[in-house]
Write a protein that binds this DNA or RNA. Sequence first.
DNA 1: CGTTGCCTTGAAATGGATCAATTCCGGTGG
DNA 2: CCACCGGAATTGATCCATTTCAAGGCAACG
Lengths: 239, 239
Amino acid sequence: MKISGSREGTHWQSCHDCTARGFAICAALNNTELRELAQLSRHVRFESGATVFAQANIATSFFSVHKGILRIYKLLPDSRRQIVSFALPGDFLGLSTLPRHEFSADAIGRVALCQVAKESFATFSENRPRLLCRMMELAGRELARAQEHIVLLGRRSAEEKIASFLIGWRDRLNGIGRDGEILTLPMKRLDIADHLGLTIETVSRTFSKLERGGVIQIFAGGVVLLDAARVESLSAGVS
Amino acid sequence: MKISGSREGTHWQSCHDCTARGFAICAALNNTELRELAQLSRHVRFESGATVFAQANIATSFFSVHKGILRIYKLLPDSRRQIVSFALPGDFLGLSTLPRHEFSADAIGRVALCQVAKESFATFSENRPRLLCRMMELAGRELARAQEHIVLLGRRSAEEKIASFLIGWRDRLNGIGRDGEILTLPMKRLDIADHLGLTIETVSRTFSKLERGGVIQIFAGGVVLLDAARVESLSAGVS
DNA sequence: CGTTGCCTTGAAATGGATCAATTCCGGTGG
DNA sequence: CCACCGGAATTGATCCATTTCAAGGCAACG
């Protein structure tokens, strides 16, 4: 397993004006605590395509995504791949306290992460119920997303999968301040396919079909939701 | 929404010799705390098929499964159903702190649950980091299971799905003390189908195929793993 | 013993996968 | 500025695993 991240500095210079502050775990901390945690953490960067950690390896650190996007995935022995989720700024990697990584994570484009040793973090959080509650909150959200994805994979058609994915992606981008109907899709078609349980060809065909229907417009690196309401109805939303 | 559970007594008489003690959240509590929590909780029972709570309703309570099995599921508007998971004794329902239920839960056979009002529980857990950590642990496990299920739904064939399901079910039963290669499957074929993203016919056919292959033996209400190693290899396990 | 609710089995239909070319596009070098 | 190259995306033509449609079968129960 190659770890190709460059480590720079021992801790993040400016947690105060961190762009991911607010959505990350840090939101539960006051300034003093923030400074303390900063002492324990280091800031790491990874180039596009680099593997941050791999499935089944001993997990020694937690990460909080600061900038960029990662794909979180599992491989079957015969190299089939399932992308469990995409991690965005503010997402916490390693909520599960199990000793080994449950999945692999690699960078889509350049990413910047805050890394904290598991042990230090455990001691730090031990007597900070507010932080623990915040973690429960993130875990709960993560779980809700996973369950929603289970429905998508188990019971939705290809078109519904794509539509749901677009809506979900839009909502997540909104959540971190990137509003609007112009969606950047930094991941490749193959990533989308492996996320939705489809093949690259089906993803491509479905995008084309939606574009022909005037519902979306495809451009290099993304999509415009010309008719967001239509996309939502195609997604066969919850309840 | 019908709540057809009969409420009996204000709290569970004997948390000490509770059969689910040990795997439930309670494992993180000492005797004093256990007694305190018992004051806040009530013991409820539901008949087979009863709905404990439904998706999108306001969530006022947490539940810990004491006896029996529940199906945890979501419905799409057109009534397609996806069973997200089956809840066993020791499982905690409502880890997500969101105000509304993310899914519906109903009893498969008779069940007994410990119910605690969300608010009381929040105050109780607020200054008990050990309990919060225990919840994180359960949440982490739940999340890991959900992610494993995502792989199953996204990238496995019908036969692999069934085999994985049987192995997973065996392991979970082992976890609560029901060892051995004789698996009781209290849920119906339709439940299995809706859990694995298949149709009832495919489930039935695949079971039959495995039986013809001498890998399992079907009996009313369950299955015997005649060749567990074979089932494991058919499941195309992780990594 | 007839009914009712599951489960199983068979035959036909199909959505998405697979196989096989193209086309598109950003980068690179002449 | 243009030609060329390689990776990604698209498109078309089959194929096939699973669904869908349609009968039975079987055990529990009145």
